[in-house]
Nucleic acid binder design. Structure first.
Lengths: 335, 335
DNA sequence: CTGAAAGCGCTTACAG
DNA sequence: CTGAAAGCGCTTACAG
């Protein structure tokens, strides 16, 4: 592969000149600029990023960190959806995404991750940091690597979706439709901060409506479609009088809808079902799913934008993205 | 951050010694080895990968390339599912994945991608190269970067799923259940090699069964759930006598099932519906979807294994992964 | 406006 | 068994 040296030789200038012309330093005559660009084109030169990284620290790589816990990472469409927003920004800025999937235990992230963080390879990090068990940010802060977190662990730069408000809105919608016999499909507490805040929003909403939250039947569904279906079955068996199921994510809601149909309860006529996330599939279910949009692509996009702002030595403000109620066919007024 | 120099000083040896000890070169006394390791631990040293990359070309990074065409990349669970297999191997080998998503047009991949390929940053590549429009491999071969392709473009090292056999098996199953009035939900030809081969398999199977393939009603569904639903509607409106719908992927099959239910055709009693891919959601639909398993995680895992084999200077054989018919509740014998 | 030279942090023949 | 030294391909004060 041709190097800077080759270009310099070909253009009859010094390597310093080539380097500066290529990084758009002003103060060059049009003539030398032209000579350089022609040599670059003639040799089809592209910079060796390892060389650049070593001398300047610029690698044009950011790490996107998704801790590898539960099955979420590779089965939740939400992940891919958020990645879409990150990709869009990276592409616009000419950066590459390095996908890091540390194994996370109470002792912290694994060694492979530590190695990456301290490798000098990544200019910045975007960390999905939402597991109460442990944060992935410790080693990042220690090395002073610019980082934006998506989640609730304490840190300077972060983006969050307003899960509390989303949870609040959710129950408000259901109650507004006249439902009072409401079953909740949740997840084990303290596995994910967002889920805990959604639940807190539900609780506040229930109390604001004069419902006794502690009395609402609640079963944990473990995130998946199957988990949602199983939870729905347990709820409906034990509480046949229910008229609405409120699920903390769309996948569990999908399972709940299927389970209702299998038990010959029509959705929405006999049972209102509501999800959370607004994953792409939610709109194309039958019936289409009422849900809370947490703007997954925008979440990723905003975090990426903040990171690039940081890399340009600005100090962006944390962002809490609003949620939005999306009413579709799976919820109608109670009969 | 501490450097090799720091470690050498701390241990009272040369940098060459530290470097060699860390790369497990033999011929060192237990004593110096110990001194080095203690210094490494004391300083919490981790190698700077840019330095290593520059001097040895080893970066511990492979690029995973998914061309950005259609909506597939960020909406198809299949992508994430395959990535899971790749991640597993990378993690085992201590490598990192750089996710590259070149915009692909007939003129080839975009400039950002070319820059990456020639950056000296990636030790090897795993390319999802399956779009007839253009290949992403040109610049990779030109720079002699070790590369394994997942797809049908011509290249030395590749992994494919046996789409032709899968297509064949598919129709064979449906015909074996006694169905003769079969509608096909496909995609536009020449947008994706795998799809074309599945279709070729269907054709061969039809002919082997004495069916006139050209006469089977066929509508293009454009990959998505909505596309599948719309295609199913057009088929059932025009050909109410159909008893089976064969869909070239699971997402379209999901849409087809929903459409059937919306039109009050019960699945599987009134209409058998079959998909292809065996994405995670297929098993948890209602009814669960009969499909062809193309072993997505194994596809990614095999490709990654081949690449690591290449990086160790072996010459792996191309692999064609067998497909497997997964019979679930969405297909039963014709009445 | 342009260039000589040092340096980023590693690895690797080559000597001994 | 260990080390001195060159070199990987860039960038960046510093001079002029």
């Amino acid at each position: 592969m041709p190097t800077l040296q080759d270009v310099a030789r070909h253009a009859g200038v010094s390597t310093a000149t080539v380097s500066k012309v290529l990084s758009n330093t002003p103060y060059f005559t049009e003539e030398t600029r032209l000579k350089v660009m022609q040599a670059v084109a003639a040799l089809n030169y592209r910079p060796n990023l390892a060389g650049r990284a070593l001398s300047s620290g610029k690698t044009e790589i950011i790490a996107v960190v998704f801790p590898y816990v539960y099955d979420a990472l590779f089965t939740d469409p939400f992940v891919l959806y958020m990645l879409q927003g990150i990709e869009a920004e990276c592409h616009a800025e000419g950066y590459n995404m390095l996908l890091s999937t540390p194994r996370l235990t109470a002792a912290g992230p694994d060694d492979h991750y530590l190695r990456l963080v301290q490798s000098g390879y990544v200019e910045g990090m975007l960390a999905f940091d939402n597991v109460p068990l442990a944060s992935v940010l410790g080693p990042v802060h220690q090395r002073h690597i610019p980082c934006v977190a998506i989640g609730y662990h304490e840190t300077q730069y972060y983006v969050r979706s307003d899960d509390y408000a989303g949870g609040f809105e959710m129950l408000q919608h259901i109650v507004g439709l006249g439902h009072r016999r409401i079953g909740l499909i949740t997840v084990p507490e303290k596995t994910n901060f967002s889920m805990d805040y959604r639940l807190a929003g539900l609780r506040a909403s229930a109390e604001a409506s004069g419902l006794d939250f502690a009395r609402l039947p609640q079963v944990s569904g473990n995130y998946s479609i199957e988990g949602g279906a199983a939870a729905a079955k347990r709820l409906l068996d034990a509480y046949p009088e229910l008229t609405a199921l409120v699920c903390l994510n769309d996948r569990m809601a999908m399972g709940a809808v299927q389970q209702c149909q299998a038990l010959h309860r029509r959705v929405p006529e006999d049972m209102a079902v509501m999800g959370y996330d607004n994953i792409p599939q939610a709109a194309s279910m039958l019936p289409p799913l009422t849900t809370i949009d947490q703007q997954a692509p925008e979440l990723g996009r905003t975090a990426a934008r903040m990171l690039f702002s940081l890399l340009k030595s600005h100090t962006p403000e944390p962002v809490i993205l609003p949620t939005q109620l999306i009413v579709r066919g799976s919820t109608i007024p109670v009969r």
